[in-house]
Simulated assay, not measured.
Amino acid sequence: MTLFEIISFGVRDIIEIALVAYLLFQLYRLMRGTIAVQIAVGLGALFLVQVVVELANMTMLSTIFSYFNQVFVLAVIIIFQPEIRRLLLLLGKNPIVRRFVNTTDQSQIVNETVTAVEQMAERQIGALIAFQRSTGLRSYIETGKMLQAEVSHDLLITLFHGQNPLHDGAVIVNDRRIEAARCILPVSTSMKLSPQLGLRHRAAVGLTEQTDAFVVVVSEETGNISVSRDGALISNITPDELRTYLTNALTNQSATADSTVEPTTA
């Protein structure tokens, strides 16, 4: 085998390198700002130590590392389970396929939601509304009280009223129906989020870190409207901006309002 044959590569190799680089970049984006980065650094340090041990031909340490290698893959899966889940979810989103899927008219649910959110913001009624998209939310729906009701602004306001026993937790909407209220959502542990954020905002981000749901939040303290998607929080938006974001989310369109409001963690 000649030197040229060893170092030569074709289009397939370029595509493979590009795919690996893309996957590593997406994995870094998912892990950035979380404790998983520190764990990854620790695992990388252990790997370097193992390389040194093998080069130095240290028999006892090599034996110890060989036992560690047997459970290494399982340990990585367990430790990085949230990040792996989010990465697989990202890879599972196929915009080409979505173009061939018929979407129902969501104008009514958008109008009812925006009307309810606007009124709750004015009255400083805290709210947390999650909209299911391609990822099923059954495990979260089952933690709440089943309703199976049509979406209306009056019902949403009533559910989040302080005197209502269902006001705590989230309302989950799927296919133009309120599936359940008082649902428990996962709370984000991302270090990128402001420590001033309450549980509602952290729960909104937590759900969108693990699924492709779209979540609307109304702050009880300030009345500010926020939305969360893809693990990002967009704060202090107007009802018109909410209408745009929600319409895009429910019709699986590209978020054309991205340039209107920048994501923030404040």
Rank of each mutant, 00 (worst) to 15 (best):
S139A: 06
T63C: 05
K192S: 11
G126Q: 12
G44L: 12
L197A: 00
V11W: 09
G92D: 08
Q50S: 11
R176W: 03
S259A: 13
T135H: 10
H153V: 05
I157F: 02
R32A: 14
A18L: 14
F131C: 05
G223T: 11
L24P: 00
A45W: 06
A266Y: 12
T59R: 11
A36E: 09
G198V: 02
I109R: 02
L246S: 10
V187M: 07
N94K: 05
Q132K: 12
L147E: 04
V11I: 11
L88S: 08
V73Q: 10
L23N: 00
K192Q: 13
S8G: 10
T244V: 15
Y28W: 14
A255Q: 11
V171F: 05
F9P: 02
Q50M: 14
T158E: 13
L30K: 10
T113P: 02
R176I: 06
A170V: 07
T265H: 09
R182V: 01
L166Q: 11
A249T: 11
I172T: 05
R133L: 09
Q81V: 03
L3P: 00
L23P: 00
V110W: 05
G10S: 10
V11L: 12
P186R: 11
L155E: 07
E150F: 04
E122P: 00
A255H: 14
P95A: 03
I157C: 06
H167F: 07
V110G: 06
V73H: 08
E241M: 10
F47T: 15
Q70V: 11
A203W: 04
T2Y: 09
S134I: 00
L233V: 07
N164P: 02
Q119R: 13
Y22V: 13
R182M: 10
I109V: 15
V216A: 05
A18D: 08
G92N: 15
P239R: 08
L61Y: 12
S228E: 07
A149H: 13
T135N: 09
G126P: 04
M191Q: 15
T208H: 03
A130S: 10
K192H: 04
T135C: 08
A121F: 01
L61D: 04
M146T: 14
I234A: 02
V97Q: 06
G144N: 03
V51K: 10
L128M: 06
G144T: 08
A21G: 07
L61G: 04
I79L: 15
Q210E: 15
G136L: 06
V205R: 05
R85P: 00
L193H: 05
L91V: 07
T104E: 14
L128W: 04
L155I: 15
I125K: 14
Q148Y: 13
N224L: 10
E16T: 14
D105H: 01
M60W: 10
S228T: 13
V114H: 10
P165R: 09
A257F: 14
